[in-house]
């Protein structure tokens, strides 16, 4: 028989435990499937959470990290409150998505992966989200042609929002910002450095 643990391909599980936010919980999944049945967009996922957990334990690294699955998490938290083992499933999905993005393995044309990165870049600029700039970047994230088509489709919604003062074209120049943008950037830069250090030390 020899060392039976060699029969299990646990390397990817260890990688996830060391590098993915809340990844140490993955091994606790008992494969009941309540998360998969509770997910509002579950029918569109290549692999629902229960399957992702088993794939991690089976060492299917590429299939998990290049999957579009966790990018369709709407953060509804159904899975978290229903999981009989109380796994923080929403956070694990976010953590896997972030890890895939960090390694450059996230699917290239996944719309939420693109939009979510635009959102982060947007808030990091001035400390607060500029909704107008975020919207324009979203419409044009797949090129100019599609951008104009989307803008035209969204025109009436934009006009409705402007009429009710819930959208302000003036946000295109300047817009809401922190007073202490400099301090904010210094804090966030330091946090990123510490995050990078922590992950470098943890990698198996």
């Amino acid at each position: 028989m020899g060392d039976i643990s060699k029969n299990y391909r646990l390397n990817f599980l260890k990688e996830v435990e060391a590098n993915v936010e809340e990844g140490e919980w993955v091994k606790m999944c008992m494969q009941c499937g309540v998360c998969s049945g509770s997910c509002p967009l579950g029918k569109f996922w290549d692999h629902p959470p229960q399957e992702i957990f088993m794939m991690i334990r089976a060492g299917k690294r590429d299939a998990v990290l290049t999957s579009n699955a966790m990018w369709m998490c709407t953060s509804c938290y159904n899975c978290i409150v229903r999981c009989p083992r109380e796994l923080p499933i929403t956070h694990i999905m976010h953590g896997l998505a972030h890890y895939a993005q960090r390694l450059g393995l996230a699917p290239a044309h996944q719309p939420t992966a693109k939009f979510a990165q635009l959102f982060w870049n947007n808030l990091m600029k001035k400390g607060r989200v500029n909704e107008l700039k975020l919207g324009v970047k979203l419409y044009f994230m797949n090129g100019i042609g599609e951008g104009f088509k989307t803008s035209l489709k969204m025109k009436d919604i934009g006009l409705g929002m402007m009429k009710t003062k819930r959208m302000n074209p003036m946000e295109a120049i300047g817009g809401h910002a922190l007073e202490d943008v400099k301090g904010f950037h210094a804090v966030m830069q330091k946090a990123q450095e510490l995050e990078d250090q922590r992950l470098a030390n943890q990698r198996p």
Binding site: E21, T74, S75, H94, G95, A97, H98, Q101, R102, T112, A113, F115, A116, Q117, F119, W120, N121, L123, M124, G127, R128, V129, L178, E179, D180, F184, M188, A191, Q192, L194, E195, R198, L199
Partner: peptide, 18 residues
């Protein structure tokens, strides 16, 4: 001078500590 909380989709660009 409060800042954005990162909302639900901040996780793509933002790791745990940031």
């Amino acid at each position: 001078d409060w800042n954005c909380c990162g909302a639900s989709i901040g996780y793509a660009g933002g790791g745990e500590l940031p």
